[in-house]
């Protein structure tokens, strides 16, 4: 685990090593988090880089009341939403969220990062019943909507819904153990 407190102190003193460690630890996860709002990898990478640049510039005046993770997530979310507004691509965004998941606010303070869970997700998927895994992977890897999955698997849309729910339920149950 990162000693975030010491890294922040190092950052405030202009320690490039600390900055590098923080960058390596959070960059990928933040870009992926930004993807939730703005499905454009290059745009998300630009946003996250400018957030880190700002973090470096304002390091001496930095006051983070919550955690650095929350601070960064909030920054990414706000920047992405700003970017969406600027590009006036709200329409596209809605199309995207419609096929993936309901668009709503996330609990940033308790957010679990991609890299925290990724390796466990694969493990849980392996021990999951085939039917659930199949539906889940089609949704995840190919970005198919429930209707499309139902067609592909020759089952009803309702069945897909149930299988997906079961898969997520199992993931949640097992991942909770890892997260404790």
């Amino acid at each position: 685990m990162l000693d975030e407190h010491n890294l922040l102190i190092g950052l405030k003193q202009g320690n490039e090593e600390a900055f590098s460690l923080l960058f390596k630890a959070y960059y990928k996860d933040l870009v992926l988090f930004g993807g939730w709002y703005l499905p454009d990898r290059v745009a998300c990478e630009d946003i996250v880089q400018s957030i880190f640049l700002k973090l470096w510039d304002e390091r001496s005046a930095l006051t983070i009341t919550s955690s650095l993770k929350s601070y960064l997530l909030k920054s990414v979310r706000n920047a992405c939403l700003d970017e969406i507004r600027h590009q006036n691509i709200i329409q596209e965004h809605e199309d995207y969220t419609a096929h993936s998941m309901i668009y709503r606010e996330v609990d940033i303070d308790h957010y679990i990062l991609y890299s925290d869970l990724q390796k466990y997700v694969e493990k849980v998927l392996k021990i999951m019943p085939e039917a659930y895994r199949e539906a889940f992977l089609l949704s995840r890897n190919e970005g198919l909507k429930y209707r499309e999955i139902a067609e592909k698997l020759q089952v009803s849309e309702r069945t897909v819904e149930v299988r997906m729910s079961k898969a997520l339920e199992l993931l949640r149950k097992y991942l909770k153990e890892f997260l404790v």
């Binding site: 992926l32 703005l38 499905p39 995207y96 998941m101 996330v106 991609y114 889940f136 995840r140 970005g143």
Partner: peptide, 16 residues
Amino acid sequence: INLWQITHPAFNPSDI
């Protein structure tokens, strides 16, 4: 939502 986000990244994490 968190879980869904993590398991459904908008783009391939290895591209980053």
